[in-house]
């Protein structure tokens, strides 16, 4: 019991969760509007897209990769989905087009990393620009009106809870089970821990990497549909800078950039903390510019604390 309490305290998720509670407590005391249903649902909605995309990102990072293209893929998928909706009027086709566009971009990332052996950082940095450019070309830079199922996904409610929040919780549960109990999940951790050893042990590391990049693309596609649905419009610039929030959520949640370590529950907590912090800036009416500065600082501090804890030996 004592031991399990100590291990709990040592978990990164726990310290982030404590931070989450502290921020929530402070906001509860300092602002009466914070605990209102409407505000909480807003925070949840804000957290949901970051969390959904971060689920894929976490798996990529656990497998010792990184995906910088998620923000652009959000925009590309949203635009693809909205254009198909306009052209065909079919909700099903529009949904499939959005998810398919995301998957396609993710699979291309995976192919660049596994077949062309391009470093994930560079491959997805390239995709960041390509996907955004294609989204701008497809629309001529002008937002496309979007209605139908996407609106329900982005702005609808189930029993008073935003649909996107419900989707987030379902996906967190699914991805958590996949990561901890499935063969592919366990192989993702093994590949990230020691790719060479994993390969020689007979793990199909190309397949594993393809899977995590494709899944991330798919989830970014879903994120794009939700965001566009919420605004009832697909802006080709949608999701600009989202990669920062997503990666911050993953790192805050205790996932190591060096691979092989991280938890899905942590990602959820990380995403909620990010959403809560931006909410705090609004409620406390601090300049939005400070919010931009803070986001960057959070990433630096989270990784810095991790580095300090590991000590200088980790550089060897």
């Amino acid at each position: 019991m004592n031991l399990s309490l100590r291990t709990l305290l040592q978990q990164r998720e726990f310290s982030v969760f404590a931070m989450l509670l502290l921020v929530a407590l402070y906001l509860t005391i300092s602002n009466e509007y914070f605990l209102s249903h409407r505000n909480l649902m807003n925070v949840g909605r804000q957290a949901s897209v970051v969390a959904i995309v971060a689920l894929g990102q976490a798996l990529v990072i656990i497998a010792r990769g990184i995906d910088l293209s998620v923000g652009s893929v959000i925009g590309f998928s949203a635009v693809s989905s909205a254009l198909v909706m306009q052209a065909t009027g079919s909700d099903v086709l529009a949904l499939l087009a959005g998810l398919g566009a995301g998957m396609l971009a993710g699979a291309l990332n995976g192919l660049m990393v596994t077949r062309l052996r391009i470093n994930p950082f560079i491959a997805t940095l390239g995709m960041l620009s390509v996907a955004r450019g294609v989204a701008l070309l497809m629309t001529g830079g002008i937002p496309v009106g979007y209605s139908g199922w996407a609106e329900w996904l982005g702005a609808g409610r189930v029993a008073g809870i935003p649909v996107s929040v419900v989707i987030m919780f379902i996906l967190v549960a699914v991805v958590h089970i996949v990561a901890t109990r499935s063969v592919i999940g366990r192989e993702i951790y093994a590949v990230g821990d020691n790719p060479k050893a994993a390969r020689l042990a007979g793990i199909d590391i190309a397949k594993t990497r393809m899977a995590v990049f494709t899944l991330t693309g798919l989830l970014a596609g879903l994120g794009g549909i939700i965001l566009a649905g919420n605004l009832a419009s697909a802006d080709p610039n949608l999701g600009m800078g989202y990669e920062l929030d997503v990666i911050a959520a993953v790192i805050l949640g205790g996932t190591a950039l060096s691979g092989g370590r991280g938890s899905i529950i942590g990602v959820l907590i990380g995403a909620m903390l990010m959403a809560l912090l931006s909410n705090a800036f609004v409620l406390l009416s601090i300049s939005a510019y400070w919010q931009v500065v803070t986001k960057g600082l959070i990433i630096i501090i989270a990784v810095g604390v991790d580095g300090l804890q590991r000590g200088p030996d980790a550089d060897e």
Partner: peptide
Amino acid sequence: TAGILPQHSVRRNASAASLRNMGGGVFV
């Protein structure tokens, strides 16, 4: 460098090559 998975437990190091034979199929 090429053998152990340093952040994994003894058990998980041992099972790494045969996860598909542990319960058969998608889940371990």
